[in-house]
Design a protein around this nucleic acid. Structure first.
Lengths: 325, 325
DNA sequence: CGGAGGCGAGATAACGTTATCTCGAAGGGT
DNA sequence: ACCCTTCGAGATAACGTTATCTCGCCTCCG
């Protein structure tokens, strides 16, 4: 910048004015400065600019896996772009230590705000940061033990939609196979399913199978719910990965089992029959998260909000088979 | 930091020394400073640190879509982590303007290096940056018109593997359906396929269908290659998305068509039969890209390298059906 | 014709770090 | 006893920006 000033024969401050399109700069000087900028290939240093200005114009997104399908992340990027902010993202890989490193790194870089897909339960490290003014919005699940803004899907309604859809199609023995209950969504969905069974007067025994996502465990769960004196005629799955595994287990089986999956995915329309799913509204989740983050940045003292976004059941075939088909 | 110094009753420089674990600081002072840091919840400002030090310890990844399956990105993150560098990623959404914005933004933030999945052909904007010392490695395709480090898969060998696999299983009429030829990989793979046909003495007419990825176009291409006097008995697809669409079109058809897909994916083992694929070695691509980027950062003058990473054919069933089955 | 007011542009001081230099004290060798 | 070395710690100057203040000039009005 000092070189540009020398080249153009003006003061440092004038170059800054030109770069920031300050209207109080003469047009002749402006062109001279622009020429100098072009000839020297000058690029302003955003770090110094941020240091002086105090804000970074950058939001951080700490998600479980960048490289997995994550429609919420896409919505986050687009909403932030609409607000003229840059989103920089990093993976936490479902590792608490890594989440901590990533978030702290974003804090030290003084990002204006952070969107976090929180994992596990050890989030005490956030307390000092929040006290110090960090703006943070949790997505997909709340931050365990802390009162922080969050945007989550209506897991309970989703499970109820799935259950009632199957009941409406004549099923009386419906099973659930899903994610580990130590994971927030895994717990919420399994609990909601137990609630459905109870409300329907159906016994829960042997019908609810949360646990780690491993092919072996899911195959065993499928075998369990389909055997015995009164086998299930329909299955609700707790997330996309489980859906894939369950369908893999079911294919080739003689009886036709109805399936409703939680989470829409590319797979859903590539199977035979197409998969009926409870779809999350990723665009709304992402957009709301950015809105809430911007609101918190603007007013750090505003009351904490926990937003629940509705889900939608998309019937595609797999959930409409009658029992015993 | 000045507050910490006052709290601990030491000079600013000493706080800096403690933070950076300078061994020339007395243990009593160190504990006092640490206590002050803890009580004031002090977090060093990475921006000022970077400004002073000159380096950011940060690599940028500008990829087409963060939120899509991208095993290369995962490998990039892990390799960078092993090198104690942070990767911050952003999407270019296959938009040239957005790619430009993202990359320039990373340049202004003075990232130590950038991994780019380049799109389109307008990359002139990179020239001044490269002249100014930007370290950049292209992944998946080269930067059009510029001599820049890049790591790409061996597309030609992959197509040849697929073609020869099908020939070995008795197919004499093999078709190709793939991505737009304006995209680098689309062009390379279509051209390689034409080469295979020529080398095999087979006519290319009606057998090579590159183009935009739209369900309608792909359905039309499938219909074309399967009709006429001598229909194809096998199809090679140009990428994962095309594979999905082709399989969707083929399902329910009476004849059994052999398929080999380019790109492995979650889908490949969820179909019936499982999909035979040409798999890219994402871990090697990502690891090599980081290695090359670090090497370029260390020695900006080193000669440009273009690395081609081998691909592998994984036979799962769909590529082994004999013709006329 | 003189002074007030406005406007364009320069000098200087921050922002929060770290590197260099300096300095004082302590310790050991002659 | 003196000097030299060593080591710990402070003062100061950068890194590259922008905000504030100031100043000079031009214009317009009394």
């Amino acid at each position: 910048m000092v070189d540009v000033a020398r080249e153009a024969g003006v003061a440092l401050r004038t170059v800054s004015r030109v770069v920031n399109q300050d209207p109080t700069v003469g047009s002749d000087l402006a062109t001279r400065v622009h020429a100098a900028i072009a000839s020297l290939e000058y690029q302003p240093d955003e770090r110094a600019r941020q240091l002086r200005l105090g804000v970074t114009g950058t939001l951080g997104a700490a998600v479980r896996q960048l490289s997995h399908v994550n429609p919420v992340l896409q919505a986050l990027e687009r909403s932030a772009r609409a607000a003229k902010l840059m989103v920089l993202a990093a993976s936490t890989e479902d590792d608490e230590q890594l989440e901590r490193d990533v978030v702290m790194s974003m804090c030290r870089r003084r990002f204006d705000g952070i969107i976090l897909e929180p994992i596990g339960s050890g989030h005490d490290y956030l307390v000092p940061e929040l006290d110090a003014g960090l703006s943070l919005v949790a997505v997909d699940r709340p931050v365990h033990g802390l009162d922080v803004d969050c945007v989550i899907s209506d897991n309970v309604a989703g499970i109820e939609l799935a259950f009632e859809h199957l009941v409406r199609h004549g099923h009386e023995r419906v099973a659930y196979i899903g994610d580990d209950e130590r994971i927030f969504t895994g717990h919420e969905r399994a609990a909601a399913f137990r609630g459905c069974l109870a409300a329907h007067g159906a016994p829960a025994e042997g019908m609810v199978h949360p646990g780690r996502i491993e092919p072996g465990r899911i195959a065993a769960a499928v075998h369990t719910v389909l055997s015995g004196p009164s086998p299930a005629t329909a299955v609700v799955t707790g997330n996309a990965t489980t859906s894939v595994e369950v369908l893999r287990c079911l294919r080739g089986g003689s009886e036709r089992v109805a399936v409703v999956g939680f989470d829409d995915s590319e797979l859903a329309t590539s199977l035979r029959p197409d998969l009926t799913v409870v779809a999350q509204d990723a665009a709304t989740i992402g957009g709301t998260a950015i809105d809430m983050l911007l609101a918190r940045i603007a007013d750090p003292g505003r009351p904490v909000r926990r937003v629940t976004v509705p889900v939608e059941l998309i019937a595609r075939g797999s959930g409409e088979s009658p029992p015993g088909a």
